[in-house]
Each structure stands twice: as structure tokens, then as C-alpha cells.
Nucleic acid binder design. Structure first.
Lengths: 355, 355
DNA sequence: TTTGGCCATGATAGCGCTGACATGGCACCG
DNA sequence: CGGTGCCATGTCAGCGCTATCATGGCCAAA
């Protein structure tokens, strides 16, 4: 006979024998205690404790065709933005039987598609994916996933299933409008990697400036390279070399904004007097910088935990009424965009929704 | 009869029928192609492609008592340090059948122990854990894991199995020595969270100053709160309030160092002339800051990929001869510790090993 | 009392895959 | 030409769990 595979670990049958019941009763007592009489339940719990029984996930998955795995696909590990979303997800899943299977698409839709296929082959209980810009086949895979799907960090009117995020275009518009109100007129854009969400922020920037009649494409400085503080310095230097009269920049994320600040310090360019700087995401460092840096606070942790909440509700058969949740964003106005001549009382956290 | 669980997905039996062989042959062709004749192999591959067959992980795991899951436990998602390790791990695992199961211990040994137990119940192929400071029971679990275990990011002489990292004490000693050589004499220490690795860096700091006869415990400023840029500002402010003559600080990580720099800017304290600043980890921003910030470059990505390499070798039965790998670290000397009177030609990247 | 229905529990049969062993064909040997 | 050993392939029996249906006891309604 084949030796036991579990390496000596007790199986449900061992628990059953010890508790003097059949194994199916143990199974029920563990998954659906209501269906077992209190007395047996107690005996079983005792046996479980004594034997230190831990159910075998794989056997369970095979027998029931269900798993407790929630697949999560994000485009980057290094980007703190997603670290916060992840924290929200893991915290939302603590003390539950669910486990996270994490994939990194590296901002590549092809890679994302591959991950999707891999993950789906494991019949996850739910799937959380960053962004709404899947490939056609990726979307098809998601649509046929047979499990709840939550797209996060962006907003669109065509969710595969559910969606939690905010409008990047609206947020780009809001920051740019703020710079205009602060009195800046020759506002540049610094962008790295230029993934779809960045593109939409750029669109918002463009729209706001166009409305004001101040749009000049020459002030847009982008690179496909991935974002970093040094890159922020390089991009600002480039921009100023080409358009020396630029008086403010909207940086598509906080790393770039920090780099821009350092470049200004090096070039002895006064911030905010001669150069306004606004970032995106409002990482913790923005408030600590000197001068403190204006940014757009994005509710990353909340998006993660909200996504988990929606996914769990859907798994339980209670699909939320609102399939698309707009978390909004908040403009955090700080020193880096307070032009001396325009300093005036302003609420420090202006809340926007997808108006 | 029970309906097929796989939701219509083809099983190995379907592939076998289509290829005109038995299912065990399909199984072999997929896992161990050498053992199947080229002709059958080709037929099988064709059938797999036509049916879009994807093996069921759970069935495989149940039948073979093995999985392709590598468990990874890190103490933080938000800390970029571990993001880099993770990238190394994921990159090392790309194009392999292995999957990562990721856990966040939140710097809590208790939580780590819990995660360990959970992970082990899934019989992972290998385990990669950050640090060497497991609880007693955690160590026991690891020792009895029955799979390769790699402890990363630290060094010790008592590996559970394998180990890749560097000496935190030696690196703390190296930075402090550098500050002394640069001419600083009243050197403070800023530390947050004070996890065991931080403690060892502090030990290195203490030893270096004690050797120089300049150790003063009053210059150590720590907090159990977790690290952030703002905290760096606060800690430096505290230190200067208590010990205004402090002329340099070794910050236990780069966030704190950046915060310290901002605080100096705010207080109009010249860096490096009146205050030297050194950080730890050498995140990308350190080189971009103004002035650029001295730090200790830690080979985080390499540690991740090396750990994966060792784990895979061990899984394959080729346990590396060197169970403990010291990756070393590199002092990155930059503007923030170049005191005007002591500026002299120095190699820009001094390599240290666990001397 | 009978009957029907419900509830708690059990017996059975797989889920999709792989380990162990069996089989049959073929090359090579004396 | 029988024997030997090896190789490719197959048969069979589970891995540990749960879906499904069966069973038997109990209570309420008739």
C-alpha cells in the first residue's frame, strides 16, 4: 500500500475516528457548524485541537471545485502606490480563510494576460486587478472567469464586473486648475512610463489648460522609462532647457515631484515663487518635504479594502448594488504651489468626485 | 453521477483520449518529457494545444504531495527594501512553474509564526523568510518544514537551512567609521521601529564610536513607530533639542535620512558643513537629493534572486555547498557627508564584506 | 395511530492527478 | 534460440476531501 502522503499529518478521517463520528460530519462541522448538533460539534472541535488537524487545501479544492484564493494582479511591486493597495487587501483578508495570490504584470498588458490565464486555471474565489486597460483577450478571460472580478485604481463606464477607483482625468484636471488658480500660467507636465492612468491624468491637464487658453504641447515632457526621483530631476531640466519660462509643473507622480524639487534646489529656483510643483498620490514624504509639496491624495488603502469587501460580498452571493464605486480623490495644497502674490485662505483638502 | 467539476475544462483524460494514449503517459509527457517517445510526445503536445488543456494544480498537489508554491514572508509591503527583494524573487521565478505565496508579518514574530504555520500546511516547495529572528516555535516549524528554507536580508551563524544576506552590524560600523573619518565627532543615531536588524545596525554604530572613544548614548534617538520621512524630521528635531552640538547623524534608513535633510533645510543647517547625514539602503532617491545623500547600498534584488536560485537548487536536490552567503554591502559616499575641510579623493563605492 | 416531513448523520462515489507496479516488445548475450 | 534486462507504456489504486443521496429518528398534523 502507498504510504500516507500527508507526512504523518492527521486527516479528516483521524479526527472523525477520534470524535466517534464519520468524516463527512467533521467536514460539515468545520465548514458549516450550524448543520451539526452542538454536542458532536464540541467533540469534533476537541479532536481537532488534540490532533492539531489542519485541513488539506488541495484536497478540499479538488473535491469541491472551490478555493479560498483571491488573485491580485498589480503592475509594480516597487511603486508604493500599489503597496498601499496591497495592505488594504491583506488587512481586509486577515482573519478570513482567504489567501492572496499575487502577480506582477510589470505594466505589460501581455504579461497581465498571461497572469490572468495562470490565475484562472486555479479557479480563484475572486480576482482583483489593477486598471481597466486589459487586452481584448484579457477582458474576455475576466468576463468568463466564473468568479467575482474587481478592477481597481481607475474608473470607467464598462466594468467587467465590479470596479473601485477614481477618475485620473478628473484628478489631472483638478491639479492643473489649482495651479491656474494659484496664478501660474506656463504650466508644464512631467510624466514617466506613461501607462494608461498617467495618460488620463495628462488628458485632464490638457483639458484644464485648453479651457484656460493656455495649452502648449511643448511643455509636456514625458518618457517611457519608469518613474524615479532622478528622472524627475532630468525631466525638469529638459523642460527648462526647452521652455525656460515655465513657471510650474504637474508631475504625474510624487517621485518625479520630489526630483523636480531637488532640481529647483540645485538650480536655485525658488519654490513656489518661481516654480510651482504639484505631484500625484500624496505619499507620506510630500508633507515632510521642504517646502512641503502639493499633491493629489489617492485613497489607495481604502481602494484595496473596499475591493476585498466587494469581492467577499459577491462570493457570498450578495453582489453590491453599486458595481462601480468612485472613491474620489483629494487635492492636498501645500507650500510648493502657494505663490506669494496669491496666498489666500484655501481649504487644505479639497474633495473632488468624478463630477 | 456527479457532474464534472472543472466547469467543462478538459482533464488529462480528455487529452489522453484525443492523443490515443493513457492518461499516465500524458502526465509523464508534461512533467518528464524524456520518458515518453518523441512521437507520442508530439501527439500529446498537439492534443494539449487543441484542447487548451491546463493541468489542475490541486489534483496534482493532492496526488503527488508536492506543490509548486514557494512561500515568502516579509515584514512589510510598504518598505521599498522588501519590494526590491520581491522583484528579485519574482524575476527569478519567471518562466518556471513556481508560484509565490506572499505573507506580510508586519514586523511581528507572532504574526510570522502564524503565517509560517499556515504556509506549511500547504506543503510549499520552499520557503523564503526575511530575517533570522524567528520565535522559538517559528524556528522549530522551519526546521521541521520538510522543504528548503532560505532566510534572507540578514546574516547569522546558525541558519535553519540556508541564508543570504549581509551583516547589519558591520554595515552600521562601516557608516559610522566613515562619518568619523570625514571629521564628524558628535554623531547621533536616528532609528525607527527598532526591529532586530535595526538593532544590529545600532550595535555597529555603538561599537565604532566606542572604539573612537566618542560614544554617547544620549545621541541615540529612537522610536518604536514605523519609519517615515516626517519621522526623520521629528527625530532630528528631538535630537537637536537635546544635544544641539550634534554634528552628524546616521539614520537607520533612507526615509529618515531624507526627513533629516528636510529638517536641516528648514532649520537652515548646512549639510554637510554643519551636519553630516548618512542613510541606509541606498534607495534611488538618495543620489538625486540635493545635496545627494550618503547611504549603504544593500543588494536587495540580488538577495531575492540568489535566494530563489538556492531554493531551486535545493528543491532539485543540489543543495549548495555554501549554506550561508554573505552578499556584502557597499558604502555610497555622497555630498551629505563631505565636510568641506575634509574633502579628499575617496573611492565612491567602498565594498565591505563581513570582515 | 398513521403519515409526512424534517433534521442530523452516514455511506458511497468520485474530484483530476500521480506513485507503484505490471506488461509487453525489443536488443543483446551466450 | 532461450534468457536477460531495459525501455516505453499501461493498469490500478488511491491522495484527502466533499456532493449526493440514503437512512433513521422524531415530531406535528390528521
Amino acid at each position: 500500500m502507498r504510504k500516507r502522503r500527508s507526512g504523518g499529518r492527521p486527516t479528516i478521517a483521524d479526527v472523525a475516528k477520534r470524535a466517534g463520528v464519520s468524516s463527512i460530519t467533521v467536514s460539515r462541522a468545520l465548514r458549516d457548524p450550524e448543520r451539526v448538533s452542538p454536542q458532536l460539534r464540541q467533540q469534533i472541535e476537541e479532536a481537532v485541537r488534540e490532533l492539531e488537524y489542519v485541513p488539506d487545501q488541495h484536497a478540499r479544492a479538488l473535491a469541491s471545485a472551490r478555493t479560498d484564493v483571491i488573485g491580485v494582479i498589480i503592475p509594480s511591486f516597487t511603486n508604493n502606490v500599489f503597496a498601499d493597495v496591497l495592505r488594504g487587501i491583506y488587512d481586509g483578508l486577515a482573519q478570513t480563510p482567504y489567501q492572496v495570490q499575487l502577480g506582477n504584470s510589470r505594466y505589460s498588458p501581455i504579461e497581465e494576460e498571461r497572469l490572468l490565464a495562470t490565475f484562472l486555471s486555479q479557479r480563484p474565489a475572486a480576482l482583483i486587478v489593477a486598471g481597466i486597460d486589459q487586452t481584448e483577450r484579457g477582458r474576455a478571460l475576466l468576463a468568463a472567469a466564473g468568479c467575482p472580478v474587481v478592477q481597481v485604481m481607475d474608473l470607467g463606464d464598462d466594468p467587467v464586473d465590479m470596479m473601485v477607483g477614481f477618475s485620473h482625468k478628473a484628478s489631472g484636471h483638478a491639479v492643473t486648475s489649482h495651479l491656474l488658480e494659484a496664478g501660474y500660467r506656463r504650466i508644464g507636465f512631467l510624466g514617466a512610463r506613461m501607462d494608461p492612468r498617467t495618460q488620463r491624468r495628462l488628458e485632464g491637464y490638457r483639458a484644464a489648460l485648453a479651457e484656460a487658453g493656455l495649452y502648449d504641447p511643448a511643455r509636456i515632457t514625458t518618457t517611457p522609462a519608469s518613474s524615479s526621483v532622478s528622472l524627475g530631476r532630468d525631466l525638469l531640466r529638459d523642460l527648462l532647457a526647452r521652455m525656460p519660462d515655465t513657471d510650474a509643473v504637474f508631475c504625474n507622480n510624487d517621485d518625479l515631484a520630489l526630483g523636480a524639487l531637488f532640481e529647483c534646489q540645485r538650480a536655485l529656483l525658488a519654490v513656489p515663487a518661481s516654480m510651482g510643483i504639484a505631484g500625484f498620490n500624496d505619499l507620506e514624504m510630500m508633507a515632510a518635504a521642504c517646502p512641503s509639496l502639493t499633491s493629489v491624495r489617492t485613497p489607495r488603502y481604502e481602494i484595496g479594502s473596499r475591493a476585498v469587501q466587494m469581492a467577499r460580498a459577491a462570493i457570498a452571493g450578495r453582489r453590491p448594488a453599486e458595481r462601480v464605486v468612485d472613491t474620489g480623490f483629494a487635492l492636498q495644497i501645500r507650500e510648493s504651489t502657494k505663490r506669494p502674490e496669491t496666498v489666500r485662505p484655501q481649504p487644505m483638502g479639497v474633495l473632488y468626485n468624478n463630477a
